[in-house]
Nucleic acid binder design. Structure first.
Lengths: 239, 239
DNA sequence: CTACTACTTTCGTGATCACAAATACACTCA
DNA sequence: TGAGTGTATTTGTGATCACGAAAGTAGTAG
């Protein structure tokens, strides 16, 4: 039916107590962050509304919200799409991640008590398990949970939304890149972070977080590879 | 007519070429960032639609967008309001500003060429002029322009939206606080920043930006004053 | 004067519709 | 065969309406 490649993303059961708008927003947000919608793919309100089984209205609001957090791009034609990646943009996003996340980590450190430490340890263990099974998507989700749990330990924290905006912008590209790189495996830098947390060593924690971010993107570390994946990325958006 | 205090904010002429949605969004965004809507004030879609002379629909979208950048808060009652400030939140916002903005400044530094330097100097001069006239609102706007011009000199920059989200969250409180403090005057730290830029000294620039942010909020620097303004703030939201 | 209750009003939500702009498509002519 | 052109379709936009939930109001009982 569609000329364009069909869109597929995770559809969760909608809780009756939550508004349709919110459910649509969170569904689409999850799809973008986990790279289920390819960069360059044009999104239409009515098409998404049809897939989700709702009227165009909540979809419109969700798309606008995602555009304000730079997860989507509204072009001059009023077409909505997942933005394409460039080498410089990729660099800026990674650098911003390191600046923001190491800052958030060090400010969360004083609030890490024993139960929170236990939660982090459990997530670390689950990541190890998922890594042995080679379940890339699960590793990704758990990795997000680990970082989120760390930063949100600070009850007054306000940077999590900013960090998630960066994750949203990196998600589609990282997903596409890792899809073309089967042998890609993640080295676990969380052990260093855990040790720094236990020692209440803010500086060591910042270094560990930065190392973790750097390694998480190491598989595109060489400029040639980065360029290669960006072209793959641009090609994927064409059909 | 209204029991609540009337809402007043800057209404710009709407350009025909721009969509109503966008105009409404930018109007409300400007109002929040410059503290024209007090914290705690409940906003209703229909009321704003009446003031702006549009249907409720574009207002709905704008409010949702502003909520996703944490400029507004949608409570469980589905009521929309400007969030109240707390002492810890204020600290976190300022710390985040320093981390993000000093980072953005140093990454923009290599892109500052001679015409851009000239623009910055001109803005600096205008700020000085506005300071002599004691025009607080104008100082604020020009100060934003100065920082924005610096950070966006980097053509690949992606942190400006994140930084503006922080400005949006600080805007209403800072405006309210400075309104209750007539003798408040800003010490100009931009000279140090300009020198650092001319010398291409990234570290000095970061220090100057941090100092500028710190001084910009110095008038609530003591915990007692901060607490005092937060209570003023909470009171203002009640009527 | 205060606390509870029934009623009225107002609110946000979400679907539908009209309209203009943008796109896709088929057709024509070089 | 390929570029240009007209029409038909699809798109986003924005207004309106119906509905259930929340808030405000008035009246009553203690």
């Amino acid at each position: 039916m569609d000329k364009k490649s069909p869109i597929k993303f995770t559809l969760t059961e909608r809780d009756e107590s939550v508004t349709i708008s919110k459910w649509v927003y969170e569904t689409l947000r999850h799809a973008v962050m986990n790279g289920q919608i390819l960069p360059g793919r044009a999104l239409t309100i009515r098409e998404l509304a049809g897939i989700l089984g709702v009227s165009p209205m909540p979809v419109r609001e969700a798309l606008r919200q995602l555009a304000t957090e730079n997860a989507l791009e509204i072009k001059d034609n009023r077409r909505v799409m997942v933005p394409n990646m460039t080498a410089m943009k990729f660099t800026e996003l990674c650098e911003a991640r390191m600046a923001l996340e190491s800052h958030a980590a060090s400010r969360a450190l004083p609030y890490i008590d024993s139960p929170k430490l236990k939660t982090l340890r459990e997530l670390d263990r689950l990541i190890d398990a998922a890594q042995e099974e080679g379940d890339l998507e699960r590793i990704n989700l758990l990795n997000q949970d680990f970082h989120r749990a760390l930063y949100t330990a600070n009850p007054h924290q306000i940077s999590m939304p900013l960090i998630e905006s960066l994750w949203l912008q990196l998600g589609p590209f990282l997903s596409l890149a890792s899809r073309h790189l089967k042998e890609h495996y993640v080295i676990d830098r969380h052990d260093e972070a855990m040790k720094a947390i236990e020692n209440k060593d803010a500086l060591a924690l910042q270094l560990a977080i930065n190392a973790d971010i750097r390694e998480g993107i190491a598989f595109v570390s060489t400029p040639e590879r980065l360029h290669h994946f960006i072209e793959e990325c641009a090609y994927a958006g064409r059909n």
